[in-house]
């Protein structure tokens, strides 16, 4: 097997004195879509924070492209090609759509290229380019945040709770985009509380509970009983 693009080695992380991740391992191959599943409080979002560089692990290693990047700043990782769409809406509500896209230029892409790619994919955003992003509908906001992932050509994409508060139809549409991004060879880590929405697009599924990986395997092999067991705490 080729070297994984993203790897967590026995990572522990804590908020203050409370440890949340008790030694987590994860390995994501190039172009692979990994679904991070688990009930509330399992440590999924913490894991995303660790990978994105927002939270420094207390021990263990974070490897990206075979290099140890433990403790690197989030903004440095972002410029290196790690795109994170955090929980909630990954947009700046008080900036216009265009200004939001301007913020994506830290990735090294030109604003004009980013705008073109975005507006061709989501024509609705083109109509709203001078509107404050916070005044758009939830779906449009999520489109805008995905647009950053689509236009900046990342190596790894981290998605945290993409479906939160959105209508099922829009969620399905957004996941089509995720599948399209993955098809381009981008490695994707998707956090979802609702397992079924994501298992369709994922190659690998990792089930997290109580800050530890409970089950990891092919997405297709994770059955209802395993999920139910993890969520309900058998």
């Amino acid at each position: 097997m080729t070297q994984p693009i993203l790897e967590l080695r026995n990572v522990r992380a804590s908020y203050g004195s409370i440890e949340v991740l008790h030694g987590v391992n994860l390995s994501v191959g190039r172009g692979e879509v990994v679904a991070l599943l688990g009930p509330n409080g399992a440590g999924k979002s913490t894991m995303i924070k660790v990978v994105s560089g927002l939270l420094r692990p207390t021990s263990g290693q974070l490897m990206i492209g075979g290099r140890d990047v433990t403790g690197a700043a989030a903004n440095a990782l972002a410029r290196a090609g790690l795109c994170t769409i955090p929980e909630g809406r990954g947009i700046f509500p008080n900036l216009t759509v265009r200004e939001n896209l301007l913020m994506a230029t830290y990735s090294g892409h030109k604003l004009s290229d980013i705008e073109e790619s975005t507006y061709s994919r989501f024509p609705r955003l083109s109509e709203r380019r001078t509107q404050l992003a916070g005044t758009m509908s939830g779906g449009e906001q999520q489109m805008l945040s995905l647009a950053r992932a689509l236009a900046t050509d990342p190596v790894i994409l981290l998605l945290d709770e993409l479906s939160m508060g959105l209508a099922p139809l829009i969620v399905a549409e957004l996941y089509q985009q995720v599948a399209a991004i993955a098809a381009e060879g981008v490695s994707v880590v998707v956090v979802e509380q609702f397992a079924r929405t994501v298992l369709g697009v994922a190659d690998q599924a990792v089930l997290l509970a109580h800050g530890k990986v409970q089950v990891a395997g092919k997405a297709s092999e994770i059955g209802e009983d395993v999920l139910a067991g993890a969520y309900l705490g058998s």
Binding site: G53, L54, N75, A78, C83, G90, F92
Partner: peptide, 11 residues
């Protein structure tokens, strides 16, 4: 607006 998100954008 969002300090963490600014970082995630690379700022």
């Amino acid at each position: 607006d969002d300090r963490a998100l600014t970082e995630l954008n690379g700022g």
